[in-house]
Amino acid sequence: MATIVGAVTTSHVPSIGGAIAKNKQQDPYWKPFFDGFPPVHDWLAKVKPDVAVVFYNDHGLNFFLDKQPTFAVGAAPQYTNSDEGWGIPTLPPFPGNQALSWHIIESLIDQEFDPMTCQEMLVDHAFTLPMKLLWPDVATWPVPTVPICINTVQHPLPKATRCYKLGAAVARAIESWDTDQRVLIIGTGGLSHQLDGERAGFLNKAFDLKFMDSLIDDPEWATQFSIHELVEQTGTQGVELLMWLAARAALPGKVRRVHSNYHIPVSNTAGGLMVMESVQ
């Protein structure tokens, strides 16, 4: 059966793409964020994943309000990045793994989750930038991917409890996949930030740090909060922590913290990073 090697959760702010394109990783503004990643690269070299399952949220590139799925699973041979309206450089296409995509889809529906299935899917910065942060120097992507998109655009958003259960259902799907593949989980988004409204610029370091700790010590801690309470505590876009929660739930059993980093500000966002793996 397939093995889940662990999870990486990270922020996905668009301007990270600009910083990479302009080679600003060691500028004083960006250094505290980018310096979080070499330990992740070392860990990836050690655990050697064959494929990655990526929980992320679309920002109005692939999905519009005409058809807005709560959960969508990619089942495409490859995923293409595209212009999001700001001229950030696009990245080369990402190969898919259709066998794993359909295995996850079939298993999720068997477990009474009912995602939209996508044989064509554009992926935006929330998917592409974490891939570039994890593998900054490769000419071709070293692992194929299965994107899983969670709606954070149109309320009502899926509840934290539901996202946690989704992650756990994805873990069961992967663990029942009859291969010897090593599967990495990625969760992208957050942490606290709010772009819109008079409260724009809202950040909540205390909550973010508590949330990061909770993923290790008490993983269901954040599921006590309603979406409204999460928006209040973390900002209208800080609610993207749902991706982290799903990613954590996709790790079976107890986990240990391999690495973490936290820095304010990355653009308007609290930049968070964690690597977790199940305790054997």
Binding site: S15, H59, G60, L65, E84, G85, W86, G87, V153, Q154, L195, D196, T236, Q237, S267, N268
Partner: peptide, 17 residues
């Protein structure tokens, strides 16, 4: 919606700050 409005901001050359 902020996610779509961000694309209008892109035309104007405005960043999130």
């Amino acid at each position: 919606n902020v996610y779509y409005l961000a694309k209008f901001a892109g035309i104007l050359g405005l960043d999130v700050q």
